[in-house]
């Protein structure tokens, strides 16, 4: 009996330990279980709601009416600074309603104007909608003092909604990065620009050398083989 215990106890202990380890790595302890999914995937809930119900605007206030005297900082083109779309995006980034004064705004979708911004990793991979970060209407410009996306608070108000523990440095990740090979990238994000060109040159250089090299090698070996076969037949006859 004692001897049996000496074998049994460690055996039970180790099998429990192993199953716990396996369960933590691959099994139910590794992530949310099926029933928890609804709460755990906060990323997808908003879009799911919009798509399933079709209500996009009901719970949001529309942008304010177009006002004849738009107070856009840094922009005074004439005595009557009436402006609808001539305000640059830069100045708009300081407005409380960044789309203020745009005609037919209510009939448009974000991607009608911001098509490039919908092609980033957050949208294509994690299925995020614009409003999940930029907020509902009226959408504040990211530099407006009270905007959740203002650099002074965006890591806590926006990033940390999904990326638990996000700090100000984390928020330095550029979600809408410029096309890495563009002039815009050269001005705004030179490291990205030069890494892109380095890697492109590496790819193009490797291929430009090895494609002709291997193809020529194949062709030349084919000729060599023909010659060899000819020699062989000469020997036998």
């Amino acid at each position: 009996m004692r001897k049996k215990n000496r074998i049994c106890k460690p055996l039970i202990f180790y099998s429990v330990l192993c199953s716990v380890l396996l369960m933590t790595a691959f099994g139910p302890l590794s992530g949310p279980v099926f029933a928890q999914e609804e709460l755990a995937s906060a990323i997808r809930r908003y879009k799911g709601y919009e798509v399933s119900t079709g209500y996009y605007e009901e719970y949001e206030s529309l942008p304010r009416r177009q006002r004849p005297f738009v107070d856009v900082p840094d922009l005074r083109s004439s005595a009557f600074p009436y402006s609808t779309t001539s305000a640059s995006v830069r100045s708009r980034s300081h407005l409380a309603d960044s789309h203020q004064g745009i005609k037919f705004y209510w009939g448009r979708r974000c991607e009608d104007c911001h098509i490039h911004e919908t092609l980033d990793i957050h949208t294509t991979r994690a299925n995020l909608t614009c409003r999940q970060c930029h907020g509902g209407e009226p959408i504040a410009g990211i530099d407006h003092y009270y905007s959740p996306l203002n650099p002074i608070r965006r890591h806590a108000y926006v990033c940390a909604k999904c990326h638990e523990g996000a700090g100000a440095s984390f928020a330095g990740y550029l979600v809408h990065e410029p096309a890495p090979g563009s002039i815009k990238a050269k001005e705004e994000f030179p490291v990205l620009y030069y890494s892109y060109w380095f890697m492109s040159m590496l790819l193009i250089g490797t291929m430009a050398f090895f494609l002709p090299h291997t193809i020529l090698m194949g062709i030349r070996e084919l000729f060599g083989k023909k010659k060899e076969e000819k020699n062989d037949t000469d020997d036998t006859h």
Partner: peptide
């Protein structure tokens, strides 16, 4: 580990 990375080096 993007969060950890952003603590060691800048987010960009």
């Amino acid at each position: 580990y993007p969060i950890l990375t952003s603590r060691i080096m800048p987010g960009w």
